[in-house]
Design a protein around this nucleic acid. Structure first.
Lengths: 249, 249
DNA sequence: GAGTGGTCTAGACCACAAG
DNA sequence: TTGTGGTCTAGACCACTCA
């Protein structure tokens, strides 16, 4: 059973999706919503806070809240799991392990995974497909404590994330993403079926458990004609930041 | 005077920056913090909610909160304003208008800026520099109601955002960003001083006022060796989403 | 000036984690 | 079992927007 504030948040999202509240229109006052749902004002505010961080509505003291966007963003799970994302869109995801090997943790591995230098970590190179087309190259490094479970997964498994949840109860809870563009190298070009020097969208990410323990870090390269990323941002919720690249520092 | 919960949030951020609380360590309990700051538990929770959406700390029911990251993300203002971002890093930003012209709003303009089809909107192409290097090409479309104010700004003005605030009191409050990679075209290559087909990071964005009124939309192309973007995300705060590109739809 | 959201309190009960 | 965060309430006062 979900919390009452989550139910209310979900009802409001649906109402926005249904265009009961169109983009640019005003939401009812907190007190009206509280009366309508039979809850206290605090609970309504909690529901509304969720929609605010999702970028769906905006507010200013003294004025009614405004509907900013109508599209529902996907859950964190769908962001972490390529297969679950594909499934939510009604498409089929494939996965294929190109190589898999243990290496001692480099200083970079060590810092990102919070492991001692030299710990044996598992490097895996995967090609991921969407609807029959190769769209993504994943170069992933797994922490030593999860590596054995990853190794037990068959090479063609479409959803590693789901398998790690089913087999180990492992849940991804936090992620940090660094996004830029790179030219396809020889290996990228061959595995993705694009020309060398084609532009690719690169995402370097670290994913951790609910307890803050890093599980994996990965460098993902997407075909730029197949995938893009979207971010909602506001004065009250600055999840996105611009960084200088290596050539500027 | 800032709200008490903001002061507390700021103190906690500084404590994390100072490494009084190191990454991976536990935060004091809510009740302890409430007693320490002499406020109620609700106020502490409000402060902590801010750090949570910033991706600095994580929490699970029943366990103490965990410090997830130490780096402070930049404000929304610094994301919107290239010049203010540069200034915060101790660098100098430049701007140069290459072309400026009115055009009737296309269906695309009309939808993104929520204006009637055919409204005369202002198209501006700018090259932005950072520390003497050209790093960004902005192709921006301004809504009719702000265009006259934009036209009055001199072509070499380093910060359009700041001028619009000073002259018009205009504040950017919400943004939606769509990020992917493209190959540099002939004009891109010439204006940015890179080879044709070089990978560029493309950001298409719409920015709106606090009242939810769209001000501008822009297609920005960054030299991929100069700039990247970072996003914090979690189960409770999914600002980031993956999208299929045109070639997949 | 009326209405609205922002802030803060003080207390209650529950669900979950960890020893 | 104990402590923790998660949920919810009922009320108060303030700051701001808008007619």
């Amino acid at each position: 059973m979900a919390a009452r504030h989550e139910e209310i948040a979900e009802e409001l999202r649906r109402a926005i999706d249904r265009e009961d509240y169109t983009v640019g229109s005003l939401l009812p006052a907190e007190t009206e919503l509280a009366a309508h749902y039979g809850v206290s004002r605090g609970t309504v505010r909690q529901a509304i806070a969720a929609l605010t961080t999702e970028g769906l509505i905006g507010s200013r003291q003294g004025a009614r809240r405004v509907v900013l966007a109508g599209r529902r963003s996907q859950s964190f799970t769908e962001l972490c799991s390529f297969a679950q994302w594909a499934h939510a869109m009604g498409r089929e995801a494939t996965g294929h392990v190109v190589s898999s090997a243990y290496h001692p943790a480099t200083p970079e591995d060590s810092e990102r995974l919070q492991l001692p230098l030299g710990t044996r970590v598992l490097h895996i190179l995967r090609v991921r497909g969407l609807g029959g087309r190769r769209v993504l190259l994943e170069r992933t490094v797994y922490a030593d404590w999860i590596a054995p479970a990853v190794e037990r997964i068959e090479p063609e498994c479409p959803s590693v994330t789901q398998r790690l949840y089913e087999d180990e109860g492992l849940v991804f809870a936090y992620g940090e993403y660094l996004i830029d563009a790179v030219a396809a190298g020889a290996q990228d070009a061959e595995l993705l079926g694009v020309r060398r020097t084609s532009p690719l969208l690169r995402v370097r990410r670290v994913t951790t458990t609910r307890a803050g323990r890093p599980v994996e870090w990965s460098e993902d390269r997407y075909r730029s004609d197949a995938v893009s990323f979207s971010v909602h941002n506001s004065t009250g919720n600055n999840a996105l930041a611009r960084k200088t690249g290596p050539a500027m520092s």
